[in-house]
Design a protein around this nucleic acid. Structure first.
Lengths: 255, 255
DNA sequence: CACTATTTGTCCGTATGTATG
DNA sequence: TCATACATACGGACAAATAGT
């Protein structure tokens, strides 16, 4: 693909500006950077001229120039007067680490290769949505555990769980060493059904600080409820993951 | 929770500015809006003063004022001189639509309640990463299908699939009427194993235009490979979903 | 070699937006 | 509210390097 084709799209003229007041030059910069980053525009390819860009995006030449200048400053392109700008970024297809398959192995692998840090562990009255899910009386307490999971010292998962009282074996120390599934088993709780949903959200200031990323980055959000044989909700978990460090992998048979 | 507690967090002073040059007043606005939106600060609660905000975030009073002005303009708070600002937004816990469970039912429900629009359908030489997955010779072609899935006229899913030649039954028209699983079955292809991974990403200009959302919104990204009984890759799919319209729901037993 | 078109670099002036004290 | 500084965005103008005729 060349830029020629891309820039002919008349929608580009209206494509700028989202709900955030981001500068025009930066939006153009982001657009171009992504094309280069993904390998859509490979090494050596000629970039569009400042004039072409300003036409396509309906901005002034100065704005287009500034976007290109930032690309040059970050080493994506070279700029030579009279000659034009050319991509000097060498794209290599990224290898997405995908060592996980299924829920159970998933958790085991995590336990071996990563560390858990407990942020908070206490009995407390849960928020309304959790109260409703558990079917609690207004003043009933659950055990809340807030944890961060790290790999090589980099935090990639943030967990907030609410759990029924299942005995002494479930405490702040044991959580660091065993998976929660094992703790439930040791406590004699036979978990039966699991319901979970996965969606996406943006990092806000709180989650950004915990996961050591900027705000406005994409995150995976897991909402999981685990029930015992009688259909009683034993445990509810909100988990937030950095997608650059963790993703959900599934294998299954269609037979 | 009140703002008093939130604002005591000294991290707020460093919390602003991400990798995008977003104005300070807008970052403060986003922070406050989220607290109100999530119900952390409920209806009737007193907002912090401009002075408190400027202290907490280490910005000038004018900047804090502007953030509050935008909140008032959007109907989240009321501002009265001498009285302070108060939340007038009534939070209601959002109902996440969750009609799907498991891959197969998932697709069936989709077929009934939603529409598919074909964007592109052709034989073509796939990009390198797809070539490698299929183990193709450099000039070998596959069938590419690009589609959008809509519910009530709102696009929520964008699909790019690459498929081996499986006969005449797999064409642009049949794709609009049957699920691809049914088409494979009709063509006598016995799909066996499925591998898929789910991650999160941000909308760029291309995906934003297709899904009718602003750029920089979170998206769910599905990468799915389907193999036949001999372990031959038959079909590869990239799917992008709006998380406000679609999420992955799973139920399973631990027995 | 000159001539020209293309493309980037630099500079001007102006208007508006952002942020401070 | 005011004065001030800096960033963003526009259009125009001209200079300088490159490539082709």
């Amino acid at each position: 693909m060349t830029f020629e084709e891309l820039l002919n799209d008349p929608r580009l003229g209206q494509a700028l500006k989202s709900d955030v007041p981001t500068p025009l030059y930066h939006q153009v910069y982001l657009f171009l950077k992504e094309k280069i980053h993904l390998g859509d525009i490979p090494f050596g390819e000629k970039m569009p001229t400042e004039h072409q860009l300003s036409e396509a995006f309906q901005v002034s030449r100065i704005t287009a120039k500034r976007a290109m200048d930032e690309l040059a400053e970050e080493g994506y392109i070279s700029r030579r007067r009279g000659k034009g700008s050319h991509v000097i970024y060498k794209h290599r297809a990224e290898q997405l680490a995908a060592p996980l398959s299924g829920l159970l192995e998933n958790l085991k692998v995590l336990g071996e290769e990563t560390q858990v840090r407990s942020i908070d562990f206490k009995r407390a009255i849960p928020p309304l949505d959790i109260q409703e899910r558990f079917g609690l009386a207004p003043n009933e307490e659950l055990i809340q555990s807030v944890r961060v999971r790290l790999t090589d010292g980099i935090p990639f998962g943030y967990y907030v769980s609410w759990t029924r009282d299942i005995g002494e074996g479930y405490n702040e120390m044991s959580l660091q060493q065993s998976t929660r599934l094992d703790l439930f088993k040791s406590a004699g709780i036979a978990l039966d059904n699991v319901e979970q949903s996965i969606t996406a959200t943006l990092s806000n200031m709180d989650t950004a600080l915990v996961l050591e990323i900027p705000t406005g980055r994409p995150l995976l959000l897991l909402d999981r409820s685990m029930y015992d044989a009688e259909g009683k909700l034993i445990d509810h978990l909100y988990a937030i993951y950095r997608p650059d460090k963790y993703q959900f992998d599934m294998k299954f048979s269609m037979k």
